[in-house]
Design a binder for these strands. Structure first.
Lengths: 206, 206, 206, 206
DNA sequence: AATGAATGAGAATTCATTCAT
DNA sequence: GATGAATGAATTCTCATTCAT
């Protein structure tokens, strides 16, 4: 129906404008979610916070669920980037260094936007395609598993699957709990204790 | 005041009727919460599932929040009973035994009604007096702290506060994650690994 | 079914007890109505305030409307008594005395329970048999009319029907307004002005 | 902000549509209030009578109270216009003319929509910002007070504050009573009697 | 594409009234 | 007669979503 814009720049401009709108909407979603909680975060409120009409919001996201899913996607991509970066850098590091960095990295990842993380994890219904969280975890486990495999000779545990699960979940769970509930504990002392624990668990007895 | 009925049976009957209604409502709340999720769990649906009129529900619980709070209270009482029983029994046990039992107990506690636990923890907004979860945790930490204090001479970590936090959260967090997300991992192997990890962390080097 | 009480005293006692219950309920109705307003005055709240079960309330009053109607009846009886007493005493009084007393009496009548009067007049829906207020007014008009008729030779207005309407409503309306909205104005000054006005209106010019 | 539509017609159309909806809702509110009384006037019934969805009603009026308040505002604006117009015209009129016109005007003002006026005055709870009625009265009293002050030399009463209160309330109260309860009495005869009464009260004896 | 007015199903909650005990 | 648990229709209000302009 409507003729396409004739100039390439214009098109690009339009695309950029779309991108800006999408970003504004996602940003507003995060803001409202954190400020009001999931239940009080209505699409109308989000549209208003984004400075966009409710009609435009639905132009870009066909439902509230899609909107929240996109936000989760974005948040998980950001956390995932931190995780992948760190793991890539540590692939050749020595066990002790790698362990300490793993713990620190997990804290960093959770610290990206802890309030949003909390709402996403605690309040958003786990329905539809909102399962990205699991994916990230699976990925991290796979990477950790490969790392441990390569150093099997240094390690005490026989069942590396189980050991990996335990290590990754210990770090993830405790970090998660600390970030959400006792942020005052975050610091080098906690990192040290967790790393100690893991190293003592992993290292072959001498 | 209104005169009390004179016969015990009659009074008991009345009380029992009320109690049965309250139990039916709480039971239905748990059921609907698990089946439909927090958002879709309307008070009308709950009343219907309880085989009770919506009016009766509001006779006993002045708001939806109060209803969920009561359910949390009940659930936490049940978990708390498991925790307290076990901890009392372990107060004099040797470190290794106590550790293994701690892990097993935590799994048992989470296994009481894992699906309900999951909904309660993941979806229910943390408002009002829904903070019972923290209380339970604080209580467990205090007990564990006292236990470790009594055995300080056997232990390696200097800062017992931090060590207690780490131990309790490792057990709680990993158990939680396993129960909710990877129930197939639950078993003696996991208990063994966790206990090993903790013991290696706690024990003074020989 | 149930055998009637055999002794007369007992029956009387019962009747008295009934009367006390009815009074308690009506008193509680007035209290709750004044405190909470008509809309928030639920039958359950009233029963509770009366120290009586909701079932008992419905034993004596078949509906909320009947309950409020009975309260209006009682209140109007009280106001009516004041009006009738005064009017009987004034039947033979001289015009000036009668006028001043009429004004004072009307203020007294409204002052019996001004807050209840206000709620009854301003908030209670005028449905069913709640029309007692009109009756009282009609009665007062008839008495006043008769009084003026007997003194027609002293009076200026020709149409005594109209004159009576005006006089009674002037007194009633201004009193009502003053009691409900400007109680600080009530006093001898106001009485004097109103009486002056009426006397100047009624008296034949000399 | 969102860019404004460029054509005036389009913009006007949008505004008109909103305005029409608001008007329809207020009109329906008046209608339902008169027909059903305050208690039975539910927001759903009003929306239906307005031919508008309940959602639209709440888009414009955030609560039932706000809705009724807006209707009161509208009604009082209409009455206020009548009062102000008339009083402005009478500012320089002679006492007798002014008095007769005051009475006639008050009847006109009450006759604008007597049934609505009755419901608003008799049934609507006096809460929130529904106090416009008092304002109107205060305004009228101030105007009347100024008028009497300017003619003080013609007048008998010493205390003009009290005299103004009495005059305004006599007119207002009797008019109110006549319009609501005895509309058949409204007419030149009543106006004449009231004006006579007031003039005899106000005029200095000759 | 954008706008925002309109929609209406559905949610929480209240309250007059009934009735088994 | 008294009790108070139970009832459920009705009410206020929210919010995801649609669609005419």
């Amino acid at each position: 129906m409507a003729p396409r814009p004739k100039t390439l720049p214009r098109k690009a401009a339009t695309q950029e404008r779309s991108k800006a709108t999408v970003d504004a909407i996602l940003g507003a979603t995060a803001k409202v979610l954190v400020k009001e909680g999931y239940d009080r975060a209505s699409t109308n409120r989000i549209a208003e916070a984004a400075g966009v009409s409710i009609g435009s919001l639905y132009q870009y996201f066909p439902s509230k669920e899609a909107l929240v899913a996109a936000l989760i996607e974005r948040h998980m991509d950001e956390m995932g980037a931190v995780v992948r970066d760190s793991m890539a850098r540590l692939a050749d590091a020595e066990l002790e260094v790698a362990t300490r960095e793993l713990v620190r990295m997990m804290i960093d990842a959770h610290a990206l936007d802890p309030k949003l993380h909390k709402v996403l994890v605690e309040q958003v219904p786990r329905v539809g395609r909102l399962e990205r969280i699991q994916d990230l975890e699976a990925h991290a486990i796979a990477l950790a598993r490969a790392y441990l495999e390569a150093r099997r000779h240094e390690l005490r545990p026989k069942d590396l699957n189980l050991a990996t699960f335990v290590v990754v979940h210990v770090v993830e769970s405790v970090t998660h709990a600390a970030v959400l509930r006792s942020p005052e504990l975050l610091g080098d002392a906690l990192i040290g204790e967790l790393a100690d624990m893991i190293l003592r668990y992993l290292r072959r007895d001498v």
